[in-house]
Design a protein around this nucleic acid. Structure first.
Lengths: 189, 189
DNA sequence: CCTACCGATCGGTAGG
DNA sequence: CCTACCGATCGGTAGG
């Protein structure tokens, strides 16, 4: 019984992620969502507390996966180059697993409200710090070559997150190969 | 007299671009805009016809500049490598000239309505076709190396358009240098 | 350019 | 999970 309720909630959250991805968070109404899952608008509230909670759930689920993945990779005893490859794989694994959520996470997080917004920003800050550290360690070891860590971090992240909207066009291996090659070739010293 | 009216309209459009950039198109109300420019909400309609027109104006102004810039560059008698450099410069010139509009153009175009949406898509298609052609000609001449033109085009565009939101953090020269180096180094054969 | 106002739609609640 | 409904806010208009 309890798992059925949880499944229905997850079903509604997934439908919301699709709608938020396609129309944007603000332009998606609870009425849109109700129609998509075959309920009356008010019945949605038997499963969720608010529209805001839907966005929080989608964004934080993604954020938690990125945080966990980063912590695994960051503390591994492998080269910065291998860490970077693992990070690209982390992003693509999440993208191919939950593409709609990953897109919403990427494009709609600005509509998050406190206190979730604060948590989100904190998690992202930590992620960024570790990502940049991997880049600058690679440079210190003479493996990577670039000037501004902040700029290079940002453009790499943007390249990778384009893939969130491309999962239905290419097999993961092809996207990952092209992305990894492009990034590592450019960083190569 | 006429120029003053035009200036006031442009002033309102610029204010709208700032708001659309910060809050998103759907989350920005005419009341927000009125407050920002110091008018009563209904007075906005003495200068514009609709909220939709504001978005159309912002997006098409950018689109026209990209179209004009691309047509200049595309038909020049220079190498693909130089054309690509000129395209990066085109994007950065527009970004540093009208950063808010460039961001809205990039993130909010999906809220455009017909018939403007159709024009926008057409202009973008043409831009993409020419951009990809420059990439594939560079490869044919043995200057560029990559596998999938579509993927590489998209990741390059994403890298470049990150700069729209970074114009107040770095001088144009620094961003352009890092971006150009990163992209050309990766494409180099 | 303002006051006054409208119909539509929004997120959400009451009560069963 | 539904029917019925609420107050708030939206884009936009009438009339001056």
């Amino acid at each position: 019984m309890k798992t059925e309720i949880a499944n229905k909630k997850q079903f509604i959250i997934s439908a919301a992620a699709e709608l938020f991805k396609d129309k944007g968070y603000k332009a998606t109404s609870i009425r849109d969502l109700a129609a998509k899952v075959g309920l009356e608008p008010s019945s949605i509230y038997s499963h969720i507390r608010s529209k805001e909670d839907l966005l929080s759930d989608i964004c934080m689920t993604c954020a938690d996966r990125f945080t966990a993945g980063m912590n695994d990779i960051y503390f591994m005893d492998i080269s910065p180059r291998k860490k970077l490859k693992a990070l690209i794989d982390l992003h693509l694994s999440i993208a191919y697993d939950i593409p709609a959520s990953a897109t919403v996470f990427n494009d709609e997080w600005k509509f998050l409200q406190e206190p979730v917004m604060g948590q989100f920003i904190e998690a992202r800050k930590d992620y960024e710090k570790k990502f940049k550290k991997i880049l600058s360690e690679g440079r210190k070891e003479g493996k990577f070559e670039f000037v501004n860590t902040e700029i290079v971090f940002n453009i790499i992240i943007k390249m990778i997150s384009w893939s969130y909207s491309a999962t239905n066009k290419y097999p993961k291996e092809e996207l990952e190969s092209e992305l990894t090659t492009f990034i590592l070739k450019s960083l190569n010293n």
